[in-house]
């Protein structure tokens, strides 16, 4: 069995350690729980994966930190730098583009105070352009903190982002 040192264990909240220990039982090899575990870390630990978080996760899975970094950096959903409090994702792929994604993006920039890929000065929003989100038949779409808003107009963008603290 694996040995986890006190030091690394201490760096992950005990609730997550318990969760990941259970998660690992779903698979014959512990490492398979890595990506779901990274998701949970990102959700619970500030919306991004800091070097310290990656190191602690590496400790739990008994992997080299660089290995965990290599996995995390492969996947667009993982953020390896700090981001704003709320994440706004606008799909810019074909079906959304045909139904006005560019206008949605422009409005999202205005309403959030971000440029695509950037964070607003007040730290409230980070805005990203994303590939097809599987909402093509209700295009265009925007996701706020992972929640889909579909079939929207530029006016809707203001309403959706305006209601956010």
């Amino acid at each position: 069995m694996h040995e986890v040192t006190h030091e690394t264990r201490n760096n992950l909240p005990p609730t997550l350690v318990a969760e990941f220990t259970e998660l690992c039982t779903h698979y014959p090899e512990r490492r398979a729980a890595l990506i779901p575990a990274l998701h949970r870390c990102q959700e619970e630990l500030g919306g991004w994966l800091s070097p310290e978080t990656l190191e602690a996760v590496a400790g739990f899975f008994e992997l080299e930190p660089v290995e965990v970094f290599g996995v995390a950096s492969f996947y667009p959903m993982f953020h390896l730098r700090p981001r704003g409090k709320h994440l706004v994702s606008v799909c810019h792929n074909i079906s959304c583009d045909l139904r006005g994604a560019q206008d949605i993006l422009d409005e999202a920039c205005k309403a959030s105070g971000c440029t695509p890929g950037g964070t607003s000065d007040d730290g409230r929003f980070t805005l990203v352009r994303v590939e097809c989100q599987g909402a093509c038949t209700s295009a265009p779409m925007l996701a706020l903190d992972g929640v889909y808003h579909e079939g929207i107009t530029p006016e809707d963008v203001h309403r959706i982002l305006g209601g956010v603290q």
Binding site: W48, F74, P76, L80, P82, R83, G118, D121, T126
Partner: peptide
């Protein structure tokens, strides 16, 4: 295209 998978920060 976004060149980096991680988010750029000002």
């Amino acid at each position: 295209p976004p060149r980096s998978p991680s988010v750029e920060v000002k």
